[in-house]
């Protein structure tokens, strides 16, 4: 899709978009390289004198109370957080687009019913839904967590896509395609979905930031990513008891979250500006 490339190009041209994209690319690289990027991938935590060490050349982010290098843990946490966010958002966007498309295109009773359901679902804050579900089992496997976050996040997207479809349906080019006898499937995919892709992409990008915050919060409460799998939220929880003595244990994962979500928001904003026909 050339518009996608154009939009990304437009984002790259703005200084803030560039900063955001750059940071995300860097983070993705770190995540991909994984263990290779870690200064101390498989450190055994048995050197007591290194516990709660302040940041130094050896340990740029310091160590935690179990003598683990905080930088390594932050990088490991990045892999998890990004993966969870990307997958969950992917799921949300797919579900939301599907429902929104169906509701907007077929209209009528189906639309009314679907949208009423969405309204009802939106009334309960996502966090509460997740708290309810996550309180039942003892441990939630990562895959289940991703599934849960994904299936609770599509409601707003469906509204968005529906609105786009409704708007686009009335556009002349869609009428023209239908008049030319284009098959329904063709109309849906080629015309409607492609044009709704812009706002969808924006929603997805911003959604990634939201999920990172959500997952971190859940992990902080002990309900999200379970130890020993590293997660930023979990690290912040770990660092709480030693906050006075070793603030870096909590501060750096928090800073990582801030930077990452900031980056996604900058990119999302820039994308939104790029797709907005009215421009600046």
């Amino acid at each position: 899709m050339s518009t996608l490339r154009e939009a990304l190009g437009a984002v790259w041209r703005t200084p803030r978009g560039r900063a955001g994209m750059g940071f995300l690319a860097f983070l993705a690289l770190l995540a991909l390289l994984g263990p290779l990027a870690l200064p101390e991938p498989f450190r055994q935590f048995d050197l007591e004198e290194l516990a709660n060490a302040a940041p130094s050349v050896d340990h740029p982010f310091g160590t935690d109370q179990l003598s683990r290098d905080v930088l390594s843990r932050v990088v490991s946490g990045a892999r998890i957080s990004l993966a969870v966010a990307a997958l969950a958002v992917g799921l949300s966007v797919t579900l939301g687009a599907a429902v929104g498309l169906v509701a907007g295109y077929w209209g009528g009773v189906l639309d009314a019913v679907l949208m009423r359901l969405v309204d009802g679902a939106l009334a309960v804050p996502r966090l509460f839904l997740l708290l309810l579900v996550l309180s039942v089992p003892d441990r939630v496997p990562l895959a289940a967590l991703i599934l849960l976050i994904g299936t609770t996040g599509w409601f707003a997207t469906s509204r968005l896509v529906r609105a786009e479809v409704l708007r686009l349906r009335e556009e002349t080019f869609v009428r023209a395609a239908e008049a030319l006898g284009a098959s329904r499937r063709r109309v849906i995919f080629r015309h409607l979905l492609v044009n709704a892709a812009g706002p969808l992409l924006v929603a997805a990008t911003l959604g990634v930031g939201d999920v990172i915050l959500l997952e971190a919060g859940l992990s902080f409460l002990g309900l999200g990513v379970q130890p020993p799998t590293p997660s930023w939220g979990g690290m912040i929880l770990d660092g709480r008891p030693v906050l006075e003595a070793a603030p870096w244990v909590s501060v750096f994962p928090g800073a990582a979250i801030i930077l990452t979500v900031l980056a996604t928001n900058l990119v999302g904003d820039a994308l939104r500006d790029a797709f907005d026909p009215r421009g600046a």
């Binding site: 919060g217 979500v261 900031l262």
Partner: peptide, 12 residues
């Protein structure tokens, strides 16, 4: 500010 986790800011 929007990107800051409320729980983190809270404990800090």
């Amino acid at each position: 500010g929007y990107a800051t986790p409320s729980f983190w800011l809270g404990i800090v």
